[in-house]
């Protein structure tokens, strides 16, 4: 009887609906992650994994200046790229949501237009723009000016490339949040004496903070793990944490150290997401009382 009740219960339906998602997470996140965690406690010797349990890999990456340098480079790059993307994306998303009218969808699609091509193609295009023989420097040379060295194979070039790559995610996340935002609330704030800046700071931003947080996570995490962009645009000093991590699995075959680096990367990314979402006030954020499409 109890079984029959269960079979017809909402619990079973909920379970059935959650099963594909759960299986996906188990097979494509937990199992690979568990493997990486196990490997991170082993060691590698001449391309061979040896199950010799130890903490040396973690000690190496957390105490050696070399690996900490890469970690610091990547963290500062990710924070800078996320912050600049945030500053740039808000006006864009705001404009589309408020003034886009019937062109909103087209404008949003245009934001995502670079995604119609592959990442390698986009990075190569950036190389053609920023490189020593790129459009910018060729133009400067033609008008008799010196080429801009900071654009050629540098951290700035990597930063620009990463902003260009991930900004559509930030714009999209904020735009989707603004779609359900009731702009009349701003009129109310201003009627009550708030300046436009204060109205934005105290009404618009807090009520769309969840969308902003999603955007931050969507930019920070891929930037932190970036390999292709710094590889092609970064130059001699451009290697980031992701490059050195990829190096362990590709060329040097030091998988155990690479696994420990991967675990650290996952932990930092998770920590970032946790901290950002801790700032969300569920009583205010994301719900404006307006129904989508109204």
């Amino acid at each position: 009887m109890a079984v029959k009740q269960f079979l017809h219960s909402k619990d079973l339906k909920a379970l059935a609906l959650s099963l594909p998602g759960a299986l996906f997470i188990i097979f494509f996140l937990f199992i690979p992650l568990a493997t990486i965690v196990v490997y991170s406690f082993w060691r590698t010797e001449s391309y061979t994994m040896i199950a010799d349990w130890n903490l040396n890999n973690y000690l190496t990456i957390l105490t050696t200046k070399t690996y900490l340098t890469f970690l610091f480079r990547s963290l500062s790059m990710s924070l800078a790229v996320s912050f600049i993307s945030l500053i740039y994306s808000w006006p864009v998303a705001y404009y589309i949501a408020k003034y886009g009218g019937r062109y909103r969808l087209i404008l949003t699609m245009l934001t995502a237009a670079p995604f119609f091509t592959g990442i390698l193609l986009r990075v190569t295009a950036m190389q053609q723009i920023l490189g020593p023989i790129g459009v910018v420097n060729m133009f400067l040379s033609n008008i008799g000016l010196k080429p801009l060295h900071l654009l050629m194979y540098s951290h700035y070039a990597t930063g620009l490339g990463l902003i260009y790559l991930w900004i559509p995610f930030m714009v999209l996340a904020i735009y989707l949040s603004l779609l359900t935002f009731d702009f009349k609330l701003l009129d109310a704030a201003m009627i009550n004496g708030a300046s436009p800046l204060r109205a934005f700071w105290e009404v618009t931003l807090p009520l769309n903070w969840i969308g902003t947080c999603i955007g931050l996570a969507l930019v920070f995490i891929p930037t932190f793990a970036a390999t292709i962009t710094p590889k092609f645009l970064g130059g001699v000093n451009g290697a980031l944490y992701g490059n050195i991590l990829a190096h362990q699995f590709g060329s040097t075959g030091t998988w155990a150290l690479g696994s420990a680096m991967g675990v650290l990367m996952f932990t930092i990314s998770s920590l970032f997401v946790f901290i950002v979402f801790k700032t969300v006030n569920l009583n205010r954020s994301g719900y404006t009382g307006k129904i989508a499409g109204e």
């Binding site: 590698t44 010797e45 362990q248 075959g253």
Partner: peptide, 10 residues
């Protein structure tokens, strides 16, 4: 020694 070479390169 890939390990030593990896360290040098890093």
């Amino acid at each position: 020694s890939p390990e030593k070479w990896e360290r040098v390169w890093s």
